[in-house]
Amino acid sequence: MIQIFGKKNCNESKKAERFFKERGIKIQFINLKEKAPSKGELKSITAKYPLEELIDVDGTEYKKRNLQYMVFDLEETLLENPILFKSPILRNKNEIILGYNPEILKGWTELEK
Rank of each mutant, 00 (worst) to 15 (best):
I104T: 04
A16L: 08
I83L: 00
K15L: 14
M70T: 06
S87R: 04
E76R: 07
N81G: 05
K8S: 09
K63S: 03
F20C: 08
K86L: 03
I89T: 06
I96H: 01
F72Q: 02
F20G: 04
N66V: 06
K26G: 01
L51A: 14
N66W: 09
E52G: 12
K14E: 12
V57E: 15
A47I: 10
L79P: 04
G99R: 09
M1N: 03
Y100L: 05
S44T: 15
V71R: 10
G99T: 10
Y62F: 09
L90I: 12
Y69R: 14
K21C: 06
F19R: 01
E61T: 13
L67I: 03
Y100T: 03
K43G: 13
S13W: 11
E17T: 14
K15Q: 15
N101G: 05
K93N: 09
I97K: 06
G6H: 02
I45W: 03
K39S: 07
K64D: 06
K113I: 11
D73E: 05
L98T: 05
L42P: 01
L90G: 05
M70Q: 10
K113S: 13
R65E: 10
M1K: 02
F5R: 02
I4C: 03
R23V: 04
A47L: 10
K15C: 15
N92W: 09
K63H: 10
L90K: 00
I4M: 04
F20Q: 07
K39N: 10
P88R: 00
I55N: 00
A47F: 11
R91T: 08
K7G: 00
I97P: 00
E52A: 15
G6Q: 03
L67T: 01
L78D: 01
E103W: 07
P50E: 11
E12F: 13
T77K: 01
L78E: 04
I45V: 11
L67D: 00
K33N: 09
L51G: 12
S87A: 07
L32F: 02
S87Y: 01
Y100A: 07
